[in-house]
Design a protein around this nucleic acid. Sequence first.
DNA 1: TTAACGCATAACCATATGGTTATGATTTGG
DNA 2: CCAAATCATAACCATATGGTTATGCGTTAA
Lengths: 112, 112
Amino acid sequence: MNPSLIPADRDAATDALFKALSDGTRRALLEALVRDGEQNVQALTEGAGVSQPMVSRHMAKLKRAGLVTARRSGRETWYAARVKGLGPVIQWMAVHGALWSQRFTALEGLEG
Amino acid sequence: MNPSLIPADRDAATDALFKALSDGTRRALLEALVRDGEQNVQALTEGAGVSQPMVSRHMAKLKRAGLVTARRSGRETWYAARVKGLGPVIQWMAVHGALWSQRFTALEGLEG
DNA sequence: TTAACGCATAACCATATGGTTATGATTTGG
DNA sequence: CCAAATCATAACCATATGGTTATGCGTTAA
């Protein structure tokens, strides 16, 4: 058993995932892919509100986190949302969220 | 007004939440509260692997994000996980991932 | 072959972040 | 009353991060 009181959730994948999702621009880019399907950098840049290089860098981070896939076709790169990418987040929510609600269900009415 | 393809998910609360969850030490602190209930800074520091001031700062950030509550009692501060704090995250997951818009218990297809 | 295109990377900047030790404010105990 | 305890804040440092413009590299098209 781990003698420490805190389980040290330093799982690299989980960390990368939450970090990737912690920026609004990246979330918006991911949402665009979820909503409208596979898109190239040009299309993503049009609505992103940031420069093309920044979009590329954000997409690279999302890819490293496992949230998107990249497909190179000629001079274009097509990105798509990767459904399974959110797995660790779901997992985390399931484990701790469930424990959470279980422990505090009785108090639910008390907080604002 | 902006007819952009990307809906610009810059909601401040959502942003603060994901940012708060994007650090492993903070997640571990939060998990400790979920697991063992309300604790003061001293107890949290014991297993955190970082200094007491750092714990205080992490807790402040979790509090700003709405993930914990703080209760001052004499010279001690007691922190507790806040039930509804994960709401915006759950909301985001529900909206942007139809697959996991249901209960978290439906994880079978996502793992692996 | 050459010019334009699409994208990634480099170089650079400002700020945020995570960490430390030192200090300060307030409460408790002897 | 004074010292210890509890926590937050300050001061400081190194690194990460988000943003820009400039550049380079492969691909398409004229």
